[in-house]
Design a protein around this nucleic acid. Sequence first.
DNA 1: GTGGTCTAGACCACC
DNA 2: GTGGTCTAGACCACA
Lengths: 125, 125, 125, 125
Amino acid sequence: MMHFENSTQAIYLQIVEYVCEQIILEQWSIGEKIPSVRELAVKMEVNPNTVMRSYEVLKNEQIIFDKRGIGYFIAPHGQSNALIYLQQEFTSKSLPQVFKTMYLLKMDITDLQQPFEQFKKNLDT
Amino acid sequence: MMHFENSTQAIYLQIVEYVCEQIILEQWSIGEKIPSVRELAVKMEVNPNTVMRSYEVLKNEQIIFDKRGIGYFIAPHGQSNALIYLQQEFTSKSLPQVFKTMYLLKMDITDLQQPFEQFKKNLDT
Amino acid sequence: MMHFENSTQAIYLQIVEYVCEQIILEQWSIGEKIPSVRELAVKMEVNPNTVMRSYEVLKNEQIIFDKRGIGYFIAPHGQSNALIYLQQEFTSKSLPQVFKTMYLLKMDITDLQQPFEQFKKNLDT
Amino acid sequence: MMHFENSTQAIYLQIVEYVCEQIILEQWSIGEKIPSVRELAVKMEVNPNTVMRSYEVLKNEQIIFDKRGIGYFIAPHGQSNALIYLQQEFTSKSLPQVFKTMYLLKMDITDLQQPFEQFKKNLDT
DNA sequence: GTGGTCTAGACCACC
DNA sequence: GTGGTCTAGACCACA
């Protein structure tokens, strides 16, 4: 279903983001069982160990929790924790770099308005 | 003088950006000799090989050129090439990631206004 | 009724301890029939197989015995055997680990006094 | 040098404890480079991936940090963070179980005094 | 079936 | 040389 070839980011981190996305968009709801390590591995066409690693990160962030021998489930505050996680990554990793470049290029925030609208349009197609 | 531990980006790319910055902000003027690989390596507290790699990227982008046995110099259109390089990196790499996250976090462009002002203030200090 | 998620110990061993506890505290009396595998499984919200495994351990330790088709009963010396079992586990598994950590943390036995009192207080509530 | 066969705990967690131990006992000092993943793997007679996993945990706990391509180093507050880590593990995982058993066995804290002294004596030999 | 650990070995980016 | 990621495959404990 998914291929990761185009991105420089580690696959297991992309899967972390994918799971966060599903939870935030409420494709998977709170308390619900999420795909097993092996299931998701098949779907994502990666090794189970890779998914395992993603789930470990998500567990540390208290986005999911595990019942041994049964599976992984979305944690009580899973959705908000997922939002917090993505937000933290965004503010600490993406934003500073973006701002620095914008400063050098003498760009203003408003210069992003039009490309952002364009981006959102492309999502629909 | 500089620490790179906080960023996820490769050190040699951070140095590329640093050099672009110096050129764009005209800390280093056109045609002028820029620091030798060894000098910059000492200043940046990194391995000379790392600086070497950065200079190779900059040479490919025609931002600097080398006179063998003498040193590296800012290329004729160094400043504009630096701007172009940063802009390309920005539009192709940073922006798409940023937009995707902003969409998920239901953020608007205007939400960036305040953090950006904050960022620019911090530059002065 | 019970949740085991917080502990690192295997669920079936926690159930073994639970049964020992009931017997030692004489919640279940000697010679009496104890809950069936299914009953306890429902109460503990675990798989019957898990309780089954616990009962097998308890049978090996001669803490309980089974009358086929009828159920499990507390063995003649069930209470003392339960005490012996817990003591053995304690001295061979828990204590060495605890002592090693206490040594590293430069803790003294007396440092445990206050937390232990606290623990006993919490039992009443 | 080391074998882990006797313990039920995961090897990578035992290595985490080992590293904490070295730091706390100041065998390795703050800011200093610790053995590379491959070095420690050879010494511990385990797969490099296993040591890698231990170092990841230690990095999360801010006990060590990494300079890519150079190695791992003891973090600024590495020693105190190591203490905190061990203490947390101790209080949350070991203590409750110990206390519960002691309660059932009608033991008192003072009953641990003599075995603890014995344990410390055995360390010298 | 589930999660969890470990190995062996490969490959990459970086220093 | 260093860390970091990924695969393939094995084995275990647990439900």
